[in-house]
Design a protein around this nucleic acid. Structure first.
Lengths: 225, 225
DNA sequence: GTCTGTTTGAAACATACGTTTGATGGCGGG
DNA sequence: CCCGCCATCAAACGTATGTTTCAAACAGAC
């Protein structure tokens, strides 16, 4: 049994269980027993549980960011400004094209991303920002060029809205797909979900904030607040 | 010291800690020591940790749903179909009007809601769905009437997107406000953030999936895709 | 074949958790 | 006054966790 076999089996099992139940809720004993390896193997090969989490994460995000950076740089090199939907599609297609990974890696990544952002004292956020600040800044620049009509403050918040919609949905695609199938008898692969996401985000980020008020007044009659 | 004092102090401490670190990551010992009460008090007053989690929820969500139901029923009684933005505003204004809760309470609640969906806190989801299925269904009906052009599957996913954008943003308004202030020197109260959210959601849920929206083409000059 | 460094194995470790127990204190009604 | 009830407390319970230990098994090099 090659050395990498144990490592990969641990990563596979951990990926499954993390996506299914979360990080704190998954024990090393569950992981190692599902992987069919000894309990001590995790600490031997990875050092700690936190390091295992980061390794599971890295296995997905490294190929992903490689794809993403190539596409972003190609887009940046274009003489014309990139369109908003094209920019968002770059991200989603990069996610879907990560080689060798099924959609579970995506769930893991999004879950971690959400945790890193919302958890105030997480060890993950620093890891993320230091590791991928370059791609992050490039994406921000292109997004700014694609939405010149927005004020910086508007853009700031709408980026958060987009990130929230994406992270929240993608981190629980399995559970949501199950609900959808049970209620409507339709089973959708993750590609379809992601494709639904792009127009929602593109339309949301470009919303005109001025036209909200009149429609609002019609029903609430100004008794809001 | 009144008998309810211990209960409230536990609820206050648990609310803060749950929002800060998550459910599994927060121990009863941390809660009781922050609250300045005995460890056994939680099991004495609430029965179990899960019951405490539900109690923390109930303290916010009960007044909220009371407000929400009243407004939704008033809207449903109207002879005209309610507009989408008005419908979304009903939710946001109900959230902001919950009595006795400051904005921090809102952040905490949203974070808890996100965690309930994201972390596999199965007992929480069932609790929420069973407890508030009536308001949920009423909202769904009104939303369906306000978005007749959507297929059920489209509507299902876009509701998830909306929930994600809302929960994610609202759960970390403090941290995000700090970032915004540091980077742009602007401080926004939570009401302003919520007001920014409504047009984003309304525009997103109505996005045309076949093509880029007209507003989008206006900017991109039709070179989408 | 023997040696050497690496990987696995079963078991134990220390710690933290949620929960339960039984004693103690205080308060109001009889 | 004392009884019964309720809330609090320190302590312990049983269990589960991440991690460490150390011997055994293995692989490849010479």
């Amino acid at each position: 049994m090659a050395q990498s076999d144990t490592v990969d089996r641990i990563l596979d099992a951990a990926e499954l269980l993390f996506a299914e139940k979360g990080f704190s809720e998954t024990s090393l004993r569950q992981i190692t027993s599902k992987a069919g390896v000894n309990l001590a193997a995790v600490n031997y090969h990875f050092g700690s549980k936190n390091a295992l989490i980061q390794a599971v994460f890295a296995r997905f995000i490294n190929p992903f960011t490689r794809l993403l950076r190539d596409k972003l740089e190609a887009a940046a090199a274009d003489k014309n400004d990139i369109s908003l939907e094209a920019l968002l599609s770059i991200i989603t297609s990069s996610i879907l094209e990560v080689p060798g990974r099924n959609h579970r890696g995506l769930s893991i990544f999004m879950r971690l991303l959400g945790l890193a952002y919302t958890q105030s004292q997480g060890h993950l956020r620093k890891y993320l920002e230091q590791q991928y600040s370059e791609e992050f800044r490039l994406f921000m620049r292109l997004l700014k060029e694609a939405t010149p009509q927005l004020t910086p403050v508007e853009r700031f918040w709408r980026i958060q809205f987009m990130l929230g919609a994406t992270a929240f949905t993608m981190s629980s695609t399995e559970a949501l797909s199950d609900i959808l199938e049970k209620e409507m008898g339709v089973r959708q692969p993750i590609d379809e979900i992601v494709k639904q996401l792009v127009p929602f985000l593109a339309s949301g980020i470009q919303a005109d904030h001025l036209n909200a008020s009149p429609a609002l007044r019609k029903v609430d009659g100004g008794k809001v607040q």
